[in-house]
Amino acid sequence: ELREAFRLYDKEGNGYISTDVMREILAELDETLSSEDLDAMIDEIDADGSGTVDFEEFMGVMT
């Protein structure tokens, strides 16, 4: 189920989504998050600083 959700956002099928897209997902899930909260969450999610979120990083957030 998580893989299907990931595929919805990984429109190009390249195995990752951008941190911008991940930020939008988080904002949709919790509309009360401030910009600073979102920045901090993205920094934590994208631990390797690649600017992308792969499936493993995505799973870590969603579980």
Rank of each mutant, 00 (worst) to 15 (best):
E1W: 15
E1D: 15
E1C: 15
E1R: 13
L2I: 08
L2Q: 03
L2W: 15
L2V: 05
R3W: 12
R3V: 10
R3P: 03
R3K: 14
E4C: 15
E4Y: 06
A5M: 15
A5V: 15
A5N: 07
A5Q: 14
A5P: 02
F6V: 09
F6A: 08
R7T: 13
R7V: 13
R7H: 13
R7F: 13
R7Q: 15
L8G: 15
L8N: 15
L8F: 15
L8C: 15
L8D: 15
L8Q: 15
Y9W: 12
Y9A: 11
Y9D: 03
D10V: 03
D10A: 02
D10H: 00
D10W: 05
K11W: 10
K11H: 09
K11R: 08
K11C: 12
E12K: 04
E12F: 07
E12H: 06
E12M: 08
G13R: 03
G13I: 02
G13F: 04
N14Q: 08
N14L: 13
N14V: 13
N14K: 13
N14W: 06
G15M: 02
G15F: 03
G15I: 03
Y16G: 01
Y16F: 11
Y16H: 07
Y16S: 06
Y16P: 01
I17G: 00
I17P: 00
I17W: 02
I17F: 04
S18Q: 05
S18K: 06
T19D: 02
T19V: 11
D20Y: 05
D20W: 07
V21A: 14
V21C: 12
V21F: 07
V21M: 13
V21T: 11
M22P: 00
M22H: 00
R23D: 00
R23S: 01
E24S: 14
E24M: 14
E24H: 13
E24T: 13
E24R: 15
E24A: 13
I25T: 01
I25W: 04
I25M: 07
I25N: 00
I25P: 00
I25Y: 04
L26G: 01
L26S: 00
L26I: 07
L26V: 03
L26Y: 02
L26A: 02
A27R: 14
A27S: 12
A27T: 10
A27D: 02
A27L: 13
E28P: 01
E28A: 15
E28H: 14
E28G: 14
L29V: 07
L29R: 13
L29N: 07
D30W: 14
D30E: 05
D30Y: 13
E31K: 14
E31I: 11
T32A: 08
T32F: 09
T32W: 10
T32G: 10
L33G: 01
S34K: 08
S34R: 08
S34A: 07
S34T: 12
S34W: 04
S34M: 07
S35I: 11
S35C: 07
E36A: 12
E36C: 09
E36R: 09
D37V: 09
D37N: 06
D37F: 06
D37H: 08
D37K: 09
D37Y: 06
D37P: 01
D37E: 13
L38W: 03
L38R: 03
L38T: 01
L38Y: 02
L38S: 01
D39M: 07
D39S: 07
D39R: 07
D39P: 01
A40L: 12
A40V: 09
A40N: 10
A40K: 13
A40F: 10
A40H: 14
M41R: 08
M41D: 01
I42L: 10
I42S: 01
D43Q: 13
D43A: 14
D43I: 12
D43S: 13
D43G: 11
D43H: 13
D43F: 12
E44G: 11
E44H: 13
E44A: 13
E44R: 14
E44L: 14
I45R: 01
I45H: 03
D46L: 03
D46R: 04
A47V: 11
A47S: 09
A47M: 09
D48V: 05
D48S: 07
D48P: 02
D48H: 07
D48C: 05
G49N: 12
S50C: 04
S50R: 08
S50D: 07
S50Q: 05
S50I: 04
S50L: 07
G51A: 04
G51P: 01
G51E: 03
T52C: 04
T52E: 05
T52V: 07
T52N: 08
V53W: 04
V53T: 01
D54M: 09
D54P: 05
D54L: 06
F55T: 02
F55I: 09
F55M: 07
F55Y: 10
F55W: 09
E57F: 06
E57R: 14
E57V: 12
E57A: 15
E57W: 07
F58I: 03
F58S: 01
F58K: 00
F58V: 03
F58L: 04
M59E: 09
M59I: 12
M59L: 12
G60R: 15
G60C: 12
G60Y: 15
G60P: 04
V61T: 07
V61F: 15
V61D: 01
V61S: 08
V61L: 12
V61R: 05
M62H: 04
M62Q: 04
T63G: 13
T63V: 11
T63L: 14
T63Y: 07
T63P: 06
T63S: 12
